[in-house]
Design a protein around this nucleic acid. Structure first.
Length: 227
DNA sequence: CCAGACGTTGTT
DNA sequence: GTCTGG
DNA sequence: CCAGACGTTGTT
DNA sequence: GTCTGG
């Protein structure tokens, strides 16, 4: 699954890679946790990209208590089109969650060992996301929130964890944003195309297997809170 | 019909 | 053990 | 995901 | 809001 990730890349580089305007600067994040703001790109009114921060943990529009979002941090790619909590967002409100690494915890007889997973050159990437707007009936304020899709881990990663976030590389971000959810065939194609198994993520290189080495400083043990 | 959920993860 | 909050 | 809580009473 | 379970 995906319960923690990083975003250390400078906004200017993200803006370039995702061809979207971003704020000039925001803090480096080594340990993004559920309920915290995450950097996201979604389709704006005119269809152009729009950068925003969204609370991690999707709060469905019909929720009467925003705390339900804490249990909606991930959505299974296999079933997201049908689930009541996600269906509407899947059809109309997909987004890109900006990241450059994520953590998975492997259970061992001694406890849990965190692994840090990132691309070979440490490039940033997008995670497939859905977003919603929830209006607080108390004060009429709105909360934008999101969830991250997960899929079965590629064979090489199963020793660490059976499921991983859907990582969008190359042209997959654009396809994720524009795919027609009604078209089951195309949905199949996109979900397969964005599965890391077909991409260049190498889970058995030192990036993954030696979290003690070379990783950002929050690894092993994970630092509490961001840098 | 109403009431209550609406989700994911794990399995040395 | 299980749930909540971050 | 992890860390931390997990409960009630009261009105000196 | 919409679906499931009783």
């Amino acid at each position: 699954m995906c319960g923690r990730f990083t975003l250390r890349t400078p906004p200017r580089q993200l803006a370039e890679q995702f061809a979207c305007e971003l704020p000039e600067d925001f803090p480096v994040r080594f340990n993004i946790a559920p309920t915290q703001p995450v950097a996201a790109i979604r389709a704006g009114a005119g269809g152009q990209c729009e950068f925003t921060f969204l609370r991690w943990g999707l709060i469905p529009a019909w929720a009467d208590d925003p705390r339900i979002g804490a249990r909606m941090i991930n959505a299974r790619a296999e079933t997201v089109a049908e689930k009541r909590a996600f269906r509407a967002a899947f059809q109309h409100r997909r987004c890109l969650i900006l990241a450059d690494g994520y953590y998975e915890w492997k259970k061992t007889p001694h406890g849990k060992q965190p692994y840090f997973i990132r691309l070979p050159q440490d490039q940033p990437f997008a995670l497939a996301g859905l977003w919603e707007t929830w209006r607080d009936p108390q004060n009429n304020e709105t909360v934008g929130s999101c969830t991250i899709l997960t899929t079965e881990a590629p064979e090489e990663m199963r020793a660490i964890h059976p499921r991983v976030p859907v990582v969008l590389l190359d042209d997959a971000p654009a396809r994720w944003m524009t795919m027609d959810p009604q078209d089951k065939l195309e949905r199949q194609q996109v979900l397969q195309a964005v599965n890391p198994r077909w991409l260049c993520l190498d889970p058995v290189d030192p990036w993954v297997n030696n979290p003690q080495n070379e990783g950002p400083r929050c690894i092993s043990p994970l630092a509490s809170g961001d840098a």
